[in-house]
Amino acid sequence: MTISWHNLIVTLGRLLVLAVLLLGTELGVRYGILSKLFFSSPTEIYHALQAQYGEGTLMPNIGITVFETMLGLIAGSLAGIATGLVLPQSRTLSRVIEPFLMVLNGIPVIVIAPLFILWLGLGLASKIGISVYIVFFAMFIPVYTASLRLERTLVDALWVMGANRWQIFWKVVVPSSLPSIYTGLKIGSGLALIGAVIGEFVASRSGLGHMILYASGTLDTPTLYLGIIALAIFAAALSFAVDALGHVLVHWRFADEK
C-alpha cells in the first residue's frame, strides 16, 4: 500500500513540475516577463510545429536524424562488438592495435567531423560515419575490457569438458560480454544521436540539427525549441528501447527479481 501511495505522489509531482514549466513559460512569454528572443511559449512552439509540419519539412527532418542515428548505432555497435570480442583472441594482435585505437578514441569527435564531411560529402553518409565512429568506441571499450578480464576458470572448466575454441567462444566469451554490450548500447545510443547532430551542425542540408541551426541563425526561437523538444523525445524513446533490449540481453540478472 505504502508503495502505491509513494508511486502516486511521484507521478503527481512530475505532472506538477511539467505543468509549472509549461504554464510558467506560457504566461511569462505572454506577459513579457521572459524575452521572446530567448524563450518561447508552448503555444508559439505549437504554432512552429504546425508551420514546419505544413511546409512538409518537419517529418523529413526528424526521419533523417532518426535514420542517421539508428544506422550509426547499429553499425557502430556491431563493429565495436566484433572488434572487442575478436581482438583479445590474439594477444599479439591486440597489443599491436590497442594504442592506435586508444589514440583515435582520445580525439574529440567535433574535430573529426569535418574530416568525415570531406570524405563522405554533405549528405547522410558523413553523419552516419561520424555516428558509427563514436558509437564504435562506446561499444568497443567495455566489450574489449570485459573480454580481457574474462573469468579464466570458466574457460578452463569448458576446456576440461572437451570444448573446442569455437565452443568456448560462443558459450563463454560471447555471453560474458552481454552485460558490457548493454553498457555499450546505453552509452552508444546517446552518442549516436550526438554524432548525427554534430555532423548536421558542421555541414548539412537537412535533419533536426540543420533545422535547429537554421532556426538559431534566423532568430526563429520557437522552431529552435521545437527542434530541441523533438530531439529530446527521440532520445527518450531510444533510451527506453535500449533498456528494454538490455533486459533481454542480460535476462538472467532480472530472472528472479519479480
Binding site: 558459450k171 563463454v172 555471453p175
Partner: peptide, 28 residues
C-alpha cells in the same frame, strides 16, 4: 573424456539456467 573436474570457484555459467548448466558437458 575420462576426466571430470570440480573447481574451487563456481563454474556454473550465470546466463544459463541450472538445468542448462548441468547438461553443458553433454551439449559440448
Amino acid at each position: 573424456r575420462l576426466i571430470g573436474m570440480m573447481f574451487q570457484q563456481s563454474t556454473l555459467l550465470p546466463w544459463r539456467s541450472v538445468v542448462e548448466n548441468v547438461e553443458l558437458g553433454l551439449e559440448i
